[in-house]
Amino acid sequence: MARNVEAYSALRELPADFLAVFCLASAERGSGVFAALAQSADKEWFSYALDIAWRAPLGEVDEDDLIEILEEFENRTESIDADDPGSKGFSIVQSAMLAVNAIAVYMNPNPARAEMSGQTLETVLGSFDFKLGGSAVTMTRAGEDEEVGHLQQLEQDGQNSFLDSVRSLVRDQGGSGLDRNFLEGLRDSCTPVRDEIRAATESVAELVGWDQE
């Protein structure tokens, strides 16, 4: 599974306050997974946590509220069987964890921790591409690039687009340029991919029988 290594390397050169925003964009796109798979009560709480995470970079949330979300996430997910990477529970927890990781990176900016968001969603979407492709193993000859499935490519494209927009802001404004307009525009731009991921997740659930669980 070919990863977006150039994008992850570029995170080390981003202004620190954009690291959490990189995570937020992945979390928004990936929220299509838990929206399709989670139980109603969990789904509502995960969405609430994501909304809070988007408000954090604007200074609209107290740190105590963020810590409470981190603790509540542990309580919410401890009863979900997420040990098997091929399971429904794994996909739910990993996609919901993206919002939690965005909060953690906001509180303690770290490029390696930010990379974890992208890597996590690539893993989940790559497994969906594999299932939707009939679970057929594709052999890659030496010197050839590994194929990237459609869903995983959507995430990589989203990451690359985000990095391009940040570079433009820094170049044109000479500062971070992180404000409400940027965040709202970024979140809106994630919506089509989020919806496509949700539809694909529903197809995976039907294909492998998760919709019967």
Rank of each mutant, 00 (worst) to 15 (best):
M1R: 11
M1E: 02
V5K: 08
E6W: 05
Y8E: 09
L11T: 07
R12G: 10
R12V: 00
L14R: 10
F18T: 11
A20V: 03
A20L: 01
C23S: 15
L24F: 05
A27K: 04
A27G: 02
E28W: 01
R29D: 06
F34E: 01
A36S: 11
Q39G: 06
A41H: 07
D42C: 05
K43H: 09
E44D: 14
S47F: 01
Y48M: 09
A49Q: 11
R55M: 13
L58W: 12
E60G: 04
E60C: 02
E63Q: 07
L66Y: 02
E72Q: 15
F73E: 08
F73V: 07
E74Y: 13
R76A: 15
S79T: 07
A82D: 11
D83Y: 03
D83E: 14
D84Y: 09
G86F: 10
K88T: 10
G89Q: 13
G89L: 10
G89R: 10
G89P: 01
I92D: 10
V93I: 09
Q94F: 06
A96Y: 08
A96I: 02
A96E: 11
M97C: 05
L98I: 04
N101E: 06
N101R: 14
N101A: 04
N101K: 14
A102C: 03
R113S: 14
R113T: 14
E115R: 13
M116R: 13
G118P: 06
E122R: 14
L125K: 01
D129A: 08
F130V: 01
G134P: 06
V137Q: 13
T138V: 15
T138K: 09
R141Q: 04
G143C: 03
G143D: 07
G143N: 12
E144S: 09
E144V: 03
E147I: 12
Q152K: 15
Q153N: 11
L154P: 00
G158D: 07
G158T: 00
N160A: 12
L163M: 08
V166C: 06
S168L: 12
S168M: 11
R171W: 04
R171G: 08
G174I: 07
G175W: 06
G177E: 08
L178I: 14
D179S: 15
R180A: 12
L183T: 00
G185D: 06
R187D: 01
D188A: 11
S189G: 04
C190I: 01
T191E: 13
P192I: 01
P192M: 05
R194Q: 10
D195W: 04
V204C: 09
A205I: 00
L207M: 05
D211Y: 03
E213D: 08
